[in-house]
Design a protein around this nucleic acid. Structure first.
Lengths: 215, 215
DNA sequence: AAATTAATCTAATCATGATTAGATTAACAG
DNA sequence: CTGTTAATCTAATCATGATTAGATTAATTT
């Protein structure tokens, strides 16, 4: 314990935020330690004082992102409202998060591929934390799955309750989340519509798609 | 002109297909010339006999992808069917392309960012074809926009004709395309559903979302 | 004020991946 | 056959970006 964040001295959080921005802007592979460092006025080398390596840093961003959204979505999914109301709120929460928590959201989605794939493939007995890093990745993927499950749960529940028409739940949810994720790609704060407005429209679209035929 | 594709000798097309696969699997930045070369049993150096450089090669993949899909979608959009029928067919064509033409489709979507962004930014007076490469990128982006426009056109037309309820067209189309693009990420040939089946379901979802209130 | 630790920096070092240079081999033209 | 060009290869070369090593500076503690 030393030094007080008087004015200088970058915090772990500052770095995570910076990294999230760069990540959303450039994507996983194209994000360099230097880019991140620049956003907080540090040199790339200095980042290693805060994080073990690039993967650990970027994974931390994704973890923060997932946790943040799960924290918003889960309570809604478990609440006692109608399935329709829950779904509408979950959609709104996700989209608004995606547009506000810029970093977090966008990063979360598109970079999973880079993370999950190869690396430390077959014979890797080198680095000490290699194992923990693998565990963290798996944990992240698991959380990501949980997130998707919450939507599946609510849609399925709505069908069982007779609130929604019968749809192929997995596909419907993929459709829904694909649309959401894409928002992170095209959304611009200066754009014509605000996050909540976009969220409303998208919720309308999907809730109408779930309406029982008659009406 | 020399040598006949007796059995050996890789064609430009072979390379494009290979590149498309790798591209879809790893993403733009993570795709290496070596990866691509390996898929066609060549060395990375050999690829330069067929393409000027990595960007030119990958851009060629994206170009082929856009042209292929535009070629399918455009005739449908211009046909004289009902807007609903046109939209249904366009959705199906896009999704099936995305699942079959693997490479093409998936690549097309997620890698635009990597292509459009930075590079050859400010002062670049070096390479001879630097200019043409920039033009090609812009042309690609323009084609990508045309693609989106076709969907906007049909949705707008359907609203004007009274076939669809009034929706915010740009947002609705982003929603639609986001859902489509995402298919390229999760679809697996060995999966539970075929491309056409998925396409049907997604078309249902979006066409229902466009239904006029009463019915 | 001295010792200790945090937070940074600059200057290497390393690894990877793109691109180039210089053969080599084989099908083709004449 | 003999010269020419296509298609490849192997062995550099270069550039970039991650990571490490060795100071340096500034709070913190005692």
């Amino acid at each position: 314990m030393a030094r007080k964040p008087a004015d200088q001295s970058v915090s772990r959080q500052d770095i995570l935020h910076a990294a999230a921005h760069v990540l959303q802007r450039n994507g996983y592979e194209a994000t360099t330690m230097k880019d991140i460092a620049a956003e907080v006025n540090l040199t790339a080398a200095s980042l290693y004082h805060h994080f073990d390596n690039k993967d650990a840093l970027l994974l931390a961003v994704l973890e923060a992102g997932i946790e943040q959204i799960l924290g918003e979505i889960e309570p809604i999914a478990r609440s006692s409202r109608s399935s329709a109301e829950k779904l509408r709120r979950m959609i709104a929460a996700h989209i608004v998060s995606l547009t506000e928590n810029t970093a977090v959201g966008a990063a979360m989605v598109f970079e999973i591929k880079s993370l999950v794939s190869d690396k430390s493939a077959t014979g890797n007995g080198s680095k000490p934390d290699a194992a923990s890093m693998i565990e963290r990745r798996e944990a992240f993927v698991a959380r990501r799955d949980q997130f998707e499950d919450l939507f599946r749960f609510v849609v399925r529940e709505g069908i069982e309750r007779g609130e929604f028409r019968a749809v192929d739940v997995p596909i419907f949810v993929k459709t829904l989340l694909g649309a959401h994720n894409w928002v992170g790609v095209w959304y611009r704060p200066e754009g014509r519509l605000s996050g909540p407005e976009i969220a409303d429209m998208m919720a309308d679209t999907f809730l109408r798609a779930l309406r029982r035929s008659h009406e």
